[in-house]
Design a protein around this nucleic acid. Structure first.
Lengths: 147, 147
DNA sequence: GTTAGTGCAAACGCTTTGCATTGCC
DNA sequence: GGCAATGCAAAGCGTTTGCACTAAC
């Protein structure tokens, strides 16, 4: 059984991108922090532990590349910082985020809540849906209890 | 019947904010361009036609103020620019965006597609939903025909 | 008259870019 | 060895802030 890392390495090779230590370290960080919604800066700091000479610009370039190859999702919670997370292999790309207005915690919903809604959009507005972003703002369970 | 502008003026007065020509011009621009999803820069250029001495910083400050008063929605399509649109008075705040990947056009859906989904999120994840953002990326009707 | 609001320019934070150098294939 | 990829520092861009001045109330 191939690991996620192996699969991505093959993809890079297939598409004629060089496998540099910086790219490998970046990938490792993203795989190890699958649910963390890391910013470029955060990825950079973690990459420096593995490959200390890596520059921030390279991390940005790597994140761009991996996003373009659909290995990563670049997401934006509206706070002016781009965040990155690795896509699950093969899985249809549907997950949503719950952002707590009190504590800032970001949680994920993995199930696809929108298939009905997408159908409606397609038929009613003649819009061919390729992807969607759904973010809920509200109060998480923990913060509801504190009040 | 009171206009939207009059209502907002009253609200500003009630909450002890001064009604400056710059604020009035900014409001006018946003009311006249209800569906345009203007960026701060775009608002600024339009405001300068009405009140030429207005500075960009003031436009930013006004947009912030009006967003905090829930007169505007500050929205983010993930392109690194904040956009602003005036809220319909009284109407529950539910609308979504369709962004075309070909031509970049942004269209709105006014109907609430998510009430079922919100209920599910509330009961299943114990998350108290206050607001949501839903953006579809895909191909608009026009661009589908071109192909 | 008081104090919130303003214009300007400088500073900010995240991201991108130019360029000379490095190292993967 | 060739050319993609890198590090560094500088520039870019949208946005925010400090400060002295202005004007709404």
């Amino acid at each position: 059984m191939g690991t996620r890392m192996e699969g991505i390495k093959k993809q890079l090779h297939r598409e004629k991108y060089k496998l540099t230590p910086q790219r490998e370290a970046t990938l490792q960080v993203l795989i190890e922090n699958e649910k963390a919604h890391l910013s470029a800066e955060e990825v950079y700091l973690l990459v420096k532990d593995k490959a200390p000479d890596t520059g921030l610009a390279t991390v940005y370039r790597t994140l761009d590349l991996l996003s373009e190859l659909n290995i990563l999702d670049k997401i934006n919670f509206g706070d002016g910082v781009a965040r990155y997370e690795i896509r699950k292999e093969g899985v249809k790309h549907f997950h949503h985020h719950l952002i707590c207005l009190e504590c800032g915690e970001v949680n994920e919903i993995q199930e696809d809540l929108l298939s009905d809604v997408e159908e409606k959009v397609a038929s009613k507005y003649n819009f061919l849906v390729k992807d969607h972003r759904l973010i809920f703002h509200g109060i998480c369970e923990k913060c509801q209890k504190i009040k």
